[in-house]
Design a protein around this nucleic acid. Sequence first.
DNA 1: CTGCATCCCGTACGATACTG
DNA 2: CAGTATCGTACGGGATGCAG
Lengths: 122, 122
Amino acid sequence: MSEEKLNKFSVSEDCPVRNVLDRIGDKWSMLVLLVLNEEGVLRFNEIDKYIETISQRMLSVTLKGLESDGLIKRTVYPVIPPKVEYELTERGQSLMPHLQSLVSWAKANLNDIKASRVAFEA
Amino acid sequence: MSEEKLNKFSVSEDCPVRNVLDRIGDKWSMLVLLVLNEEGVLRFNEIDKYIETISQRMLSVTLKGLESDGLIKRTVYPVIPPKVEYELTERGQSLMPHLQSLVSWAKANLNDIKASRVAFEA
DNA sequence: CTGCATCCCGTACGATACTG
DNA sequence: CAGTATCGTACGGGATGCAG
């Protein structure tokens, strides 16, 4: 185990993996990205309907986080009643293939993983 | 927005995405997987050294979680002092390419994302 | 309609000490 | 060496109410 390798993985504050995963690894971000990727442009309430179990508060917080990372774009139309649309940015779109690949793996392995969890309890 | 599409993303208890992401999306699991993928077989204390900032407790908890999902294998040697080795299972290995692809994206976009965050504050 | 403010809770996480 | 036990804390996240 060389010093070089040690440093490669030693986790400091700036670990790139953690920096990204801390964003998309939270409870809702990835789902919002997947929905927007599928549907293109959506309003606040539309996203809310797609992700049934999310609260308004968490949707708001999640959207703000994704916007601050430049993964989604927020467009406000100055009309009454207010209308706000969300869509993926180019950066957000460039992330999607990698997420999709993870989703495929998840779907393919979900049953086996569940079985393992049950077996592990015993 | 058809009913069909709604159901496709409506998040229930069994969402495959969430089921996987809840495991590898926590604070340490992905890092442990990456280290084991790089080094092959490691003992408890070796992993601890690689991931400098993790506590013994969290490493223990994380390893148990990954083992219960069948992503890593734990081998105990009945010797004194005790010796326990950890390594990726086949399932764990099959996940790694997807994680690696995410890591590459993270490294490539880290600086831009950080810049976006700063700009967003203003 | 969009989304912020407030209150509250469970749990993820960390520090320390201890054991086979 | 490889953990477990215990205790505290911080933060994610839900419910509700209010505002522009």
